[in-house]
Design a protein around this nucleic acid. Structure first.
Lengths: 258, 258
DNA sequence: GGTTGACCTTGACCTTAGGTCAGGGTGAAC
DNA sequence: GTTCACCCTGACCTAAGGTCAAGGTCAACC
C-alpha cells in the first residue's frame, strides 16, 4: 500500500547493510525518509539516488564527514573535489601496489628486505661454506644497516665483498665464528682478535662511523646496534668483537665505545 | 651508555609513531624490549627487525590480529599466508581501480551512473529539444530502473529509443511535459492521456512488469518507484500518468495499482 | 485465528588501528 | 640551572560501522 522501499530493500539495492543506511541518517548524509503507518522508513526514488551517490563516494574512500558538503556543493566545486578524490585514490593504489611488491621480499628466506647486491653477497657466503646461522646473522645485520645507517650501508657491503676475496680473511672469519663455542675467557680469542684487526687494517676495510646525525650519541647508538647485532646470544663473539674494536681504536680508527 | 634505540628512534626508523609501537606491544605483536635505568624502552637489533616485519605486513593491510601468528609460523605456512595476503591485496587494488573509474561518471552532469547506451538516449533527448529538467528526470528514472529492476531496464531503454523515432510521439511527450504547468483538473489532461495510451499501444511500447520477485508487492513497489519518480513534485503529471495507466489497464496491460 | 519467521524499531555497547590529552619523570645542552 | 625534547602510564576519542537486546509488524501457513 504505502509506496517506497523498506530500509532492508533500500540497503540491498545499494549493496550495504541496514545499519549502514541508518548510520548515514545519523550523520545527516541522507535525510530520513517519511515513515509509514507503522513507523517504518519508506524510501522513494530521490532517497535511493542520494544513497547511491553517497555510497559511490564512500566506496572510493572519501570520509563520510566530507561527503555531505561535497554532494551539496555547486557543480564546479564538486567537479574539482572529484578530481581530488581521484588523485588521492590513485596515490593510494600506487602505494598498495608498492607494498604488494615489497611483500614478496619478506619471503626470501629471512623475511627481511634486501636488494640484489646484498643477496648476492649472502649467497656467496653460503657458497664459501659459512653456516646458515652465520649467513642469517649477516643478513640481519645488512637489513639493519640499510635501515639504520644507509650512509654506511654501502661501505658495509663493500667491506664484506672485499673481505670475501681474501681467502686468509675468510679463514679467520670462519675461525671467529667457531669461537662462539669457546669459553669467553679462552686466550685464543685474544690471538684471533689481534690477527683479525691486523687483517682489517691491511685490507683497509675498517668500519666508517656514520656522519651527519644530530648528535654523535645517536650515530653511536645506531652503529653499535648494527655492529653488535646478535652478540647478546654469543658472549664469546661479543668479547672477540670488543677486542677487535679495541685493537682498531689503538691503531687510530674512530669507533665509539659500547 | 645504555645501548639500543629509544622508542622514538625506533618508531622513526620504521616510519611509524611512538603510539603505534606501544600499540604493537600491547597486542603482543612485538615483545617489550628491556628497559634502561630510567625505565625507557631500549630497542635492539632483533626488536627492530621484528618491527620492520610487522610493519611490512600491517602496511599491506594484514589485520594486526593475524600478524603475530603469521610471523611465528613455519616457513611454508608463512609463505602460503604471504601468497594469500598478496592475492587479497591484488583484489583490493582492482576494487579500488574500479571504484576510481566509476567515480568520474558521478561527474557527468547528473552525478549518477549510467552506461553509454543510456547516455546516448539522454543526449538525443536534449537534441530533440526536451528541457534540461525533463532530461534530468529521465536520467534519474533510468538510474533507478537499472538499479531496482534490471530485468526491465533494457525494455525501458528500448521503449525510450523507439519512441524517439516517432515524431508524433515526441510531440505528445513534449505536450505531456508542458502539462506540469496546467491545473491537475484541466480537461486537456484526459485527452492527452488517451492519445498517449493509444500511441503506446500502437507502438507496442507498453511497460513490462518485473517478474521473478519473491512477491508481487515487492515488484510493484519497485515498478511504482521508477514509474512515478518525481511525480510528487508535479501533480498534473501524476494525474496524467495515472490516467495513461488506467487506459492501458483497460486495454489489458498488466500494471499494478498505486 | 493462532503461530511462525522474516522484517522493522530504538538504544547501548564492541571493534580496529591507532590519536590525543593529562600529569609527571629524564637527560642533554646552552 | 633552566629549558626543551624526550620518555612514562592511563584514560578517553575517532571512523565506519557491527552486534546484541527487547520489542513491534507483516504476510503466510495450518
Amino acid at each position: 500500500m504505502a509506496d517506497g522501499l523498506t530500509i532492508g530493500q533500500a540497503a540491498a539495492f545499494v549493496g550495504v547493510t541496514i545499519k549502514t543506511v541508518r548510520h548515514y541518517h545519523r550523520l545527516g548524509l541522507v535525510t530520513e525518509p517519511e515513515r509509514d503507518g507503522s513507523g517504518y522508513r519508506r524510501y522513494r526514488s530521490a532517497d535511493l539516488l542520494r544513497l547511491v551517490q553517497v555510497r559511490t563516494l564512500a566506496g572510493a574512500g572519501v570520509p563520510l564527514a566530507e561527503i555531505g558538503d561535497l554532494l551539496d556543493a555547486d557543480p564546479e566545486r564538486f567537479s574539482a573535489a572529484l578530481d581530488d578524490v581521484h588523485r588521492r585514490l590513485t596515490e593510494r593504489i600506487e602505494d598498495l601496489v608498492a607494498r604488494r611488491d615489497t611483500l614478496h621480499r619478506l619471503d626470501r628466506g629471512d623475511r627481511a628486505l634486501l636488494p640484489d647486491r646484498a643477496c648476492a653477497v649472502l649467497d656467496r657466503l653460503t657458497d664459501l661454506g659459512f653456516s646458515p646461522d652465520y649467513v642469517a646473522g649477516q643478513r640481519e645485520a645488512l637489513v639493519l644497516a640499510r635501515a639504520l645507517i644507509p650512509e654506511i650501508y654501502d661501505n658495509f657491503l663493500t667491506q664484506l665483498e672485499r673481505s670475501l676475496d681474501d681467502p686468509e680473511f675468510v679463514e679467520l672469519t670462519k675461525r671467529g665464528w667457531d669461537a662462539r663455542s669457546w669459553d669467553p675467557d679462552d686466550p685464543r680469542i685474544e690471538e684471533l682478535a689481534s690477527a683479525l684487526a691486523d687483517k682489517l687494517l691491511a685490507n683497509r676495510v675498517v668500519p666508517a662511523m656514520p656522519t651527519g646525525f644530530r648528535n654523535r650519541s645517536d650515530a653511536a647508538a645506531r652503529y653499535g646496534l648494527v655492529n653488535h647485532h646478535r652478540e647478546d646470544r654469543e658472549p664469546s663473539i661479543a668479547r672477540l668483537n670488543a677486542l677487535v674494536e679495541a685493537n682498531l681504536r689503538a691503531a687510530g680508527v674512530d669507533i665509539p665505545h659500547q
